[in-house]
Structure formats: C-alpha cells, structure tokens
Design a protein around this nucleic acid. Structure first.
Lengths: 187, 187
DNA sequence: ACCTGAACACCGTTCAAGT
DNA sequence: ACCTGAACACCGTTCAAGT
C-alpha cells in the first residue's frame, strides 16, 4: 500500500525490509518478530524501517496484502462452480487458511477489521465485500441462515483461525469449521 | 493456588498484589497491566511480586480462580433443572461470560487449556471435566451432535469469547454463541 | 531524499543487599 | 523469612546528525 520510493537505495531497503519481515513472521510469528529484529535482519537501522512503514500494521499489510487480494479474486470465481453446495464453505476455508498463515495474524486481522482504517483495514473491507457477495448467492440457494451477515461470517472465520492457532494439532481447523457450519446441535 | 505465606507482612503484601492486579485487569486488561505496574500499584517492589507469583499465569489464576471454580459448581447444578432443552447452552454462555470478564483473558485461557499445566491449566482441566459431564447428559437427550467432544466445545466457547472481545458492540456475544449452536446452515 | 545510530521510557526478570 | 530496589537485556519509537 505504501508508495514505492524513488531513490534506488531506498527501494532496495524497502524490498529487504519486506523480505526480512516475511521471513521472521514465518519463523516466529507476527508478535514475536520485533521491529528492531526485522530492521537488523534487513541490515538497516530501526529508523529506516519506521520511515518506510509508519507502524506494524502497514508492514503486515504489505506482507499479507497479495494473499488477501487473492481471496477477493477467489470469491469472484467460486460462484461459477457448477452448483457446488459448499462453495461458501470452501471460500471461508480459504480465508481461514490465509489467516492462519502466520502466527498472531488472527488478532491483527480482527483489530483491523473492527476499526476498518489503516492499510490492513482497507484490505479487510475488500474481503468483507467479497464475502457479502458470496453470502447473497448462498442465501438465494438456501444454503445459509437468512439472517447471517458478512461481518458475522468473517468474525466466525477469524475466531476459528485464532482457535486453531492456539490449539495443539493443526488439523482441527477443518473440524472447527465444520462445527461452525453445521452447528453444535444435531441437524 | 500459591500457598499463603506465614509472616503477616507477607500475607498483607500478597493480598494487596491480588487486589492491585484485579483492579488493573479490570481497567486496562490482562495484557496491558504490566507486572511493574501491578507491583507499583500495590506499593511493593517488583521482586516482591515475583516472589509471590512465579509468573503472570499464577497471578491470573489467583485473580480468576474463584470464578472458574464457580463454573464447575454451576455445572453440577444445571442438569437438575427440569428438562431445560438449553441447559448446555446456558452453561457455555456462563463460561463465555467468565472468559470475557477481563480483556485478554481468552488468550491466556486458551494457552493454559492447551498445555494443561501450571495453576491456570489445572483450573482449565476442572472446567473441561465439568463440560464433559454436561456434554454426556446433553448427548443422551439428543441435544448435541454425537461426535462433539468437551475440548472442542470449550475451544468454541473460548473462540466466541475472543471474538466478542475484539468486536465493537458487546451484545454480539449471544449472537455468536447462537450461530455456533445452531450452525451457519439453516436447520 | 534518504539513512544512521544514539537516545528515551518502558518492559519482564533477576539478585545482591538488607531487616 | 521476607522485602527492597538497582540492574540487565530487551522493546517500541523518535530524532538530530549526517550523506
């Protein structure tokens, strides 16, 4: 989201920072990766990091941005699939997979989605719009409760992502998602 | 959980620390309340706090312990209620209410429930056993999916608590809980 | 136009020195 | 037996000084 700098050394520094942040997010998670660590890994001073990205949200948005955009694009494709009764669940599953990509991302995503401002919040709004479109189609086919809203669906997806982040076995994600879709009560 | 000290000044310090922690948890949440802040508020040095409670989990367990014990007791009473079809939901609702009592508690609870050790983890195990008992009774009456386990139910409750913690309006808790019980799909 | 790195107030945590 | 408070390595964040 943040604009590309003009000077070539600045562009190189920026690229290195995003690369270092991505690597550290991958290794230790969003929270444990400190700004100073990221700057050190990129081989620049802390001031340079703060100059390129005003806060951690901006940096996070840069790292996960492309993946979030892909989600909106995926939403545009899915409803075309020939009457798959589970296309909504598939998309939500993809959303959960994205949020669990880095440890700690669920919290940042939830906060950004609530305030809806900042570079990450803007991305969340786009995802919410995509969800709203899918939800409408699912509703027409009677595949979801009529009163379910897009923010609620996303909040549930984020909650599932958070829960499988703190859980021990990683395969529980699908199970939790199933429980949310089918409900705790018997159908 | 931590043993009461013998010397009277130590006992007084301990009581003041728990009081200060409770107040700060209430005002700014579990995370924002730093150990140094708590010690300062209690009028003691940081070393005294660390002597009484080896880590923040022990302190948290002391603050929320009685409330958690009450939950296990509540589980023993509920099934007696004359065939209320929603007694399980009522108990889970009480669990969620407890976890949302202090901001940041959901994360600590989830981590303690996973590792199951430490003073907070011990309490989580007791809650899980209570949930297992309720779940069995609910299953006999056909009120829940036959394959639902107690850890899963608690994980869902914790996830709902976490979600309503990060959400803007506080009344969404009941709504999220309803979605989890009834499911996203129409019944 | 951009980078450097010292600096500030904080954090969790420990531990020698006291009473 | 228990408390004190200085100390350490860290954190996020800023900003004068450089090129």
């Amino acid at each position: 989201m943040t604009a590309q700098p003009r000077r070539s050394d600045a562009r190189r520094n920026r690229a290195r920072l995003v690369e270092a942040a991505t690597a550290l997010f991958d290794e230790v998670g969003t929270d444990a990766a400190s700004m100073n660590d990221i700057a050190r890994r990129a081989g620049v001073g802390p001031g340079t990091l703060w100059r390129h990205f005003p806060d951690k949200d901006a940096l996070t948005a840069e790292v996960v941005g492309r993946s979030l955009d892909g989600l909106a694009a995926l939403a545009a494709e899915l409803p075309g699939s020939p009457d798959d009764p589970d296309f909504l669940r598939q998309w939500v599953s993809a959303l959960v997979r994205h949020i669990t990509r880095y440890r700690g991302l669920a919290v940042r995503y939830a906060e950004a989605a609530r305030s809806a401002d900042g570079p990450l919040g803007a991305r969340c709004r786009a995802v919410e719009e995509a969800a709203a479109g899918l939800l409408e189609r699912a509703r027409e086919r009677g595949q979801v409760r009529a009163d379910l809203t897009a923010p609620e669906l996303i909040r549930l997806a984020t909650a599932v992502a958070w829960a499988s982040e703190t859980a021990a076995p990683s395969d529980t994600t699908a199970r939790l998602l199933d429980l949310v879709f089918e409900g705790v009560r018997p159908h």
